[in-house]
């Protein structure tokens, strides 16, 4: 590693007050001998100074948008297990419907209720479904 790179890192750490005393002394000696280097580093850092005041903000109703979205995601009508049960139920209903149509040889609404051939003599639903 070049000495300047090492000292630049030390200089950055010193700004955070996290440089050891020993390294700090070493850095000071280096900078005394190379004042132009310090100037160079300061110029580089000056490029981004003052950016913290920039208006990096979200909209005024940001909090409400987050809460709305979060609640919507949390309170979804069907969670995954419920969906499995729902789809299983729908599949069973379709199969039963086909079974009723086939067994009664009719694709009418009456067939869905199993009462195509229901009459005064036979009122048992189960008889027809069976």
């Amino acid at each position: 590693m070049k000495a300047e790179d090492k000292y630049q890192k030390d200089w950055l750490l010193k700004k955070d007050s996290t440089l050891s005393e020993e390294e700090s002394i070493s850095l000071d000696v280096f900078l005394k001998e190379h004042p132009q280097q310090l100037e160079e580093w300061e110029i580089l850092e000056a490029q981004i100074e003052g950016l913290n005041t920039a208006e990096f903000i979200f909209s005024d109703d940001f909090e409400f948008k987050v809460m709305d979205r979060w609640k919507r995601e949390k309170e979804q009508l069907f969670d995954q297990p419920s969906k499995v049960i729902l789809y299983s139920g729908i599949a069973a209903a379709v199969l039963l419907m086909i079974n009723l149509w086939v067994s009664q040889n009719s694709m009418s609404i009456d067939a869905l209720f199993g009462i195509v051939d229901m009459n005064a003599d036979n009122t048992s639903l189960l008889f027809y479904i069976d």
């Binding site: 913290n52 990096f56 903000i57 979200f58 940001f62 909090e63 987050v66 979205r69």
Partner: peptide
């Protein structure tokens, strides 16, 4: 929210997606 805005908008720029990403961060 301001801290997250600085991070997200700093990374992505001041675009609508930045606000969406910001919402996603909190969620």
């Amino acid at each position: 929210k301001d801290q997250v805005a600085r991070t997200v908008k700093g990374m992505l720029g001041n675009v609508q997606e930045a606000e969406d990403v910001g919402q996603e961060v909190f969620i």
